[in-house]
Design a protein around this nucleic acid. Structure first.
Lengths: 228, 228
DNA sequence: AATGCCAGTTAAAAGTTGTTAAGCCTGAAA
DNA sequence: TTTCAGGCTTAACAACTTTTAACTGGCATT
């Protein structure tokens, strides 16, 4: 199982390093950024399972960053770490789609406990291990890159597998184009987008025998795997 | 749409009533129990979407209750409400499978914000949303972006679906222009407004075969989906 | 009735997606 | 080393979705 990727955006280098080292010791992969702008670029460039954001930072604060992130990714868990304990700030944090809000000072154990609660809830912990998905009448085995159904086994390519996996992880919810492109292709330029469309067409063909399975487009946003 | 069921287990009758009344006012259905034992019986007897548990209670404390609940239900969201702010207690809370841990005193707004964050994450909010609407003779399936009626299935686009959904949610009541624009377009500038008018015209065309269905304009405010 | 704003309608423009097929690259087999 | 096959990307075109524009008529206020 691959490690869980944590993006830490914190301008105080002491706390940043402390967090980073603690989480590394606990088996996470962490990336540390010093402000919201750098953080957003890192987010766009990589794949992260959870974000820890300081609120007050130079250049771009944590709330603005969270808003930008939520514009392309409604799903990634966000925890704010902040010295502000004002009620309005807490509320604002949740308004922009936070999953938790920790007020400094906090202990590393408490942070870890809250991260685990959020990760468990968001399905990151399981679905990183989840290997076999039921898609209507079909069975999709991610590890063996296999799609079984209607009497035939179809060997999937790597890209087909990655994309179908993301669709499964977001079943009945929108898989954002940008997010998928970043995850699979690492970059969301025009041509990768067209490549993705080609794979969507392929997957639709593979899944066409089950009427209850459908990959629908959400114009300008992405795709949704519908299962009933 | 059915209300969200909240089980509140709190031995302090003042706080208990306060919580209960506040949540009712906010549109939840709440059941109040005075200790863990009564709470567990209530949990077994009913269906709850989220539990708010005090930790220190006579007869059976919140941690024990949470453990018993988790033995039969690994999924239902649990939030602890407690005067204890000791680190070990917080950690113990998360160990028994809590989703959040609130230290008294807290404001009702903060509680609500944290409840919403947990409910969103656990998928309760979505699964509680209506997915299929009856519009006169027509049937509108939001998920599948489908409008069925008079012998034909019409595949709707994303924007058509979003707008029709808002109209349905506000059936026989005014859907404010601004609200709809912000919800669907994220911004209520002039051109988005004209775009919306174009979609209203389309929907009217799609629904024209049923005399009892009508989308009427409310001058200067918005539109109303009339069903008789 | 005149004015100014709001809404209805249509069509063209702009942008996104669906689909097919050709071309490119890479690693394995000959 | 050459050839081949599979997998992936690129290109091109068709189809579809959404936005913008322009023109028209309606509503409310004066």
């Amino acid at each position: 199982m691959s490690k869980i990727n944590v993006l830490v955006v914190e301008d105080d280098p002491n706390l940043g390093t402390l967090l980073s080292e603690y989480l590394n010791a606990k088996g996470f992969d962490t990336k540390l950024c010093v402000n919201g702008e750098v953080g957003f670029n890192a987010f766009k460039a990589g794949k992260f399972d959870i974000l820890l954001l300081d609120v007050m930072m130079p250049v771009k604060d944590g709330f603005s960053l969270a808003k930008e992130v939520r514009a392309t990714d409604k799903n990634v868990p966000i925890i704010f770490l902040t010295a502000k304990s004002l009620k309005e700030d807490t509320l604002k944090g949740f308004e922009v789609g936070a999953d938790d809000y920790l007020t400094k000072p906090f202990t590393m154990e408490v942070l870890l406990a809250r991260m685990n609660a959020v990760l468990r809830r968001s399905g990151v912990l399981e679905s990183n291990e989840e290997k076999v998905f039921q898609i209507g009448e079909y069975v999709f085995d991610r590890e063996h890159q296999l799609l079984r159904g209607f009497g035939e086994d179809r060997k999937l390519t790597t890209k087909e597998t990655d994309l179908l996996f993301l669709l499964c992880k977001n079943k009945n919810a929108v898989l954002e184009r940008d997010a998928a492109l970043r995850y699979i292709w690492g970059d969301d330029n025009y041509f990768n987008g067209r490549s993705m469309d080609v794979y969507i067409a392929k997957l639709r063909k593979y899944l066409k025998d089950d009427e209850s399975v459908e990959i629908v487009n959400v114009h300008g946003r992405g795709f949704k795997l519908l299962l009933n």
